Computed example of a mutant assay.
Amino acid sequence: MRIKGKGTPDADAPWHEIVPGLWMGGHVYRDAAGVRMRAVVGVEFDTVLSLYRLDGHGPGAGVEHHCVEVPDGPLVPEQIEAVCGMADIAAADVRDGRRVLVRCHSGYNRSGLVVVQSLINLGYTTEDAIFLVRYRRSKWALNNPLFVDYLTSGLDVARLLTGLGALDG
């Protein structure tokens, strides 16, 4: 499940480097001629973190791969916790000098959520991290306002608040 952006174009490359060692991408992009292409990961990265899965999109053999599918919409506490876990992996691997790709379908929202939290874990402010993602990946990155709210509130707070809704049922 993903948010259908109003006229949101595909990215212009399969992935972009946000800070040294930390890349953000998707499973599709448009080449220079405007043709929609599959973004297939080979062995360009040491670690690939996928928040969306499509068969045939890699990564190649020997690449560490973590996959946690989450929707591009409201998250439950367990999904926010999984996002935090993915961000912890990404930040630790970047600190260790590994090349990390975080990806989702289009490479805008779910991957943006993890990349921003990874940057926060690496010492960036939330505002700077959001700016970097939008500047380096696309102005369309993090077009899901709920994910921006999660990040500006803090994912720990967002996890607790989303859990309160479960108590009402």
Rank of each mutant, 00 (worst) to 15 (best):
R98W: 06
R98H: 07
R98F: 09
R98Y: 08
R99S: 10
R99H: 08
V100T: 07
V100M: 08
V100D: 05
L101K: 00
L101D: 03
L101R: 00
V102P: 02
V102N: 03
V102K: 04
R103G: 07
R103Y: 09
R103Q: 12
C104H: 13
C104W: 12
C104E: 14
C104M: 12
C104D: 15
H105C: 11
H105I: 12
H105S: 14
H105G: 13
H105R: 12
H105A: 14
S106Q: 08
S106D: 05
S106H: 10
S106G: 11
S106I: 03
G107H: 10
G107P: 12
Y108F: 12
Y108D: 08
N109G: 11
N109P: 11
N109V: 13
N109Q: 12
N109K: 10
N109M: 10
R110N: 09
R110G: 09
R110Q: 08
R110L: 10
R110E: 11
S111L: 02
S111M: 04
G112P: 05
L113N: 01
L113P: 01
V114W: 00
V115Q: 06
V115K: 05
V116W: 01
Q117R: 03
Q117H: 08
Q117N: 09
S118W: 06
S118Q: 05
L119T: 15
L119M: 15
L119H: 14
N121I: 07
N121A: 11
L122C: 06
G123V: 03
G123D: 02
Y124C: 10
T125H: 10
T125D: 14
T125N: 13
T126D: 10
T126M: 11
E127T: 10
E127R: 11
D128E: 15
A129N: 14
I130C: 02
I130F: 01
I130A: 06
F131L: 13
F131G: 13
F131M: 11
L132D: 15
L132W: 15
L132Q: 15
V133P: 05
V133H: 01
V133I: 09
R134W: 12
R134S: 09
Y135W: 14
R136S: 03
R137V: 00
R137A: 00
R137I: 00
R137F: 00
S138G: 07
S138A: 09
S138K: 04
K139T: 08
K139V: 09
K139I: 07
W140N: 07
W140L: 05
W140I: 01
W140D: 07
A141R: 04
